[in-house]
Nucleic acid binder design. Structure first.
Lengths: 201, 201, 201, 201
DNA sequence: TATGAATGAGCCTTCATTCAT
DNA sequence: GATGAATGAAGGCTCATTCAT
């Protein structure tokens, strides 16, 4: 009987195990040797499951993104107030629990790779994230407009808001920048302006 | 008599010549050998003018930033309308002339270095840019508030606006993203909301 | 099945092969490239077996010293006369067979490294050699004293004798100095003085 | 009127100034640039006065040796007891005043160079030192024999004694070895044996 | 004569990937 | 399937020496 190997599972396991290293050292300081050792697998075997080093981190990122997406969607759907929905959407940029910080780091490394030596695969992935989140954001805003809670021009801020998120992530990874609630304040201030019935003099 | 060499000039010349390579290949794919060859100089000579590879790109970045700052300040001071001042401030993220694109690329590489392997020097430099531009932005907003053209809460958007700029830069460097006027639209939309006397239903 | 490599053996083989080069060119004129080529191995492979260039020569030195120690101990134990025991101890400084000359060269390179740029590891190793050989020498002398063959003050010459050995090694490595029997003469003359019953006018 | 340069003097001055650096950093860590800067001279000028880096340290060593020789000779001639004469001869290996330590370091570096990459010039110089000092030592011993103070066989220890000196120097440069009076003890013990009228049971 | 800019070979080390077993 | 030894290009940096001015 041949040894049965659950290839997708093992692939996941390796990516899982590499995640900790990835967070700790960052992409460019990470070696295949370390990943292999950490996963309890031979260096050569890595290439049975992944095409390249980049492929590994891509798997990590994909894994993280997938689970994050689910959470976010769930959060949005289980929240009522528009403000809370939007904040939920930006949880990645705001949350300060361990899990949140971890995810931010992964995303930051992902961006770093895209900037340093962009591959089509990576850039496409980033592009899809942007589309997806911008669309979710637009859905929220559209819903608010339809229900009469938001001014019609609210939609014009969707793209910009997403991009703020990116900028915040970028800065949050650098030591000096602890403006974790910069984004919250901005969102809240903006909402005051685009909510109907709250435009005070 | 000693051979007279204008050291600062030569340093600048090398940095200048390295800039093209830097833009083309990015920091991590750039080698000292190439820089030297491109500058028509021996490898060893590079180290007469620069302390390290990082020092070279830092010089490039400093050079670019310095000249950019001057232009921006000049633009701001020679513009009347608040909107134009703000757009001038974000010229780096908006402009599509060759010079603008080049600068954006340089800035993007700079960010990339900061993300990949941040040195104190680099991060400090980034921090100072942030402070400087945020303050200029606040000055513009404050002036608008004082002159009765902007609502008081306008100031709350200063930090967020700067960060949008960063996010835009980040995305603009990736091939697929040609939303150059995303930022303009966002700014214009926001201004409509924070201007006094333009809040229409 | 994994390719089976006797790692310690290969390490030894490389060290062995490097020894010839080491003797021929000396530490500072030796390059890793040469060592690799000479061993029929890729440059990178060297670092699978050794941590650094210094590590390689240290292995060579250790190898030589280890085998030498065994021989010396054996010689001393299988010799009867005190004089012969002492001469056996200094075999490294005296012997003129190929093996002896080779060992002397290795030892000389070792000293050279210690003088030029001493690392803790190297100096400690030298220190241990000194302690070991001085102690063996003292044992021989003590035995002679106890058995009534040597005068009690003989022990006072142990340290000095060891150091003569060092000095001789040092000089023997330089081309002009062929006083290989300088040490033998000195030892013999000294023994005449410290032996009991042979102090004649 | 042509600028008159006292070339030999300037050569000496440069060597003098380089000595401190030489002591501090050792030959292999010393750069021509440093020497030039320290001497207040251009790098290129160094090569007007010296043929090579080695030539500079050779000058330093020659300078040191010359002044040392004078002192030693003077000491020997102004001392009466044989033991004191011999100790005076080995002052380089024994003295612990600043000057003595300095000289020992220079000599050690000299030996280090001879071991690492011996040039004819250096080795000849070392050979001459050996001859000179051994001869002085023999003179002292011969005088002692003639005056009936030393046994005839004393002469047999001349070569060995010189070599001990070398060995002591070599070790004294390494951190762990503080047996500064090893040599004194050895000499004194030996003298007791070779003096006439002091052979006790 | 003095200068110091320029040279460029050479150094040790790293690491993603391959492939024989 | 699994292994891990082997590869070898590439990289940043140093420094004694030369030579145009």
């Amino acid at each position: 009987m041949p040894k049965v190997v659950d290839k997708p599972k093992k692939r996941d396991d390796i990516a899982q195990s590499a995640t900790a290293l990835f967070l700790e050292k960052g992409y460019s300081n990470l070696t295949i040797s370390e990943i292999a050792k950490n996963a309890g697998v031979a260096k050569g075997s890595i290439y049975k499951y992944f095409e390249s080093k980049e492929d590994i981190v891509f798997a990590i990122i994909e894994q993280a993104q997938e689970s994050y997406d689910k959470e976010i969607l769930y959060s949005i759907q289980n929240t009522n107030k528009i403000e809370d929905k939007i904040l939920a959407l930006f949880d990645l940029c705001i949350s300060n629990c361990d899990e949140g910080i971890k995810r931010r780091k992964i995303y930051k490394e992902f961006i770093s790779i895209c900037l340093d030596d962009p591959s089509e695969k990576m850039v496409d992935f980033l592009y899809n994230i942007k589309e997806k989140y911008t669309n979710w954001l637009k859905d929220i805003l559209r819903e608010g407009i339809l229900s009469g809670k938001l001014k019609p021009q609210s939609l014009e801020f969707a793209n910009g808001l997403f991009v703020i998120g990116e900028g915040v992530l970028l800065f949050s990874s650098l030591d000096n920048y602890n403006d974790e609630n910069l984004l919250q304040l901005h969102i809240k201030s903006l909402l005051k302006l685009i909510k109907i019935g709250e435009n005070d003099e």
